[in-house]
Structure formats: C-alpha cells, structure tokens
C-alpha cells in the first residue's frame, strides 16, 4: 500500500489538526521538521469536521485546512464532513 501524506505549517492551528488527525487515524506517523509537520499514513488519511469541532469548541469548516496545509500526496475527496486523502490501489 502506498503512503499518503499531508504537510502542515507548524503553527497554532496545526496543533489541533495534528491532534484531531492522530485521533482519527491511529496508523498515521507524525514527523516534526523545521517550521513544518509532516503526517503520513498507509493508504488513507482523513480530517473529520466533528473531531475538529470537538477539539476547537467551535464550528469548523473543512476548507479551513487550506490555510495551514503546505502540501499533500494522494487523491483528494472533500465534502462537508471530511477531507480524505487516499490511494485506491
């Protein structure tokens, strides 16, 4: 199975994102590099709105992740509830 990955700016928003992502994707591996955080996982990785809202204590739009993302690898599928990265083979 191929790796999908997501790289975030290492900022305050990212703490919540990383927390939410690792909660929903226990197979994800988090790497800290200068000014950035790389999260990679076998096959699939998702960011869920409900998890993020629980952590932030406010409404959270999935597209807010666009502010902090640096790069991604994998096929994207996004709707109101989740942002999903996936390799389908």
């Amino acid at each position: 199975m191929s790796l999908v990955y997501l790289v975030l700016q290492d900022n305050d928003n990212a703490r919540y994102l990383v927390d939410g992502i690792t909660h929903d994707n226990p197979h994800a591996v988090v790497q800290h590099q200068p000014a950035m955080i790389r999260i990679e996982a076998e096959g699939r990785l998702e960011i869920r709105r409900d998890t993020m809202e629980e952590r932030l204590g406010r409404a959270w739009d999935v597209q807010e992740m666009l502010l902090d993302v640096i790069t991604i690898g994998g096929n994207v599928d996004e709707d109101d509830d989740a942002f999903v990265l996936e390799w389908k083979n």
Partner: peptide, 29 residues
Amino acid sequence: FVPFMSGAAYNGDMATVTFGFSAQSDEAR
C-alpha cells in the same frame, strides 16, 4: 517549496519560509 523552505526557516529566514509555505498552500490545490 517544502524541503528548501523548511531549510529557509532553519536558517532564520522567517520571511521566505512564510511566502514559501503560503504559496505552497495554494500548490496543494
């Protein structure tokens, strides 16, 4: 835009890493 910009941060260049990552956030799209 990823390893080089991370390198810019590591060399104290806050301005470049920020425009780099800001540009690259568009690159995700």
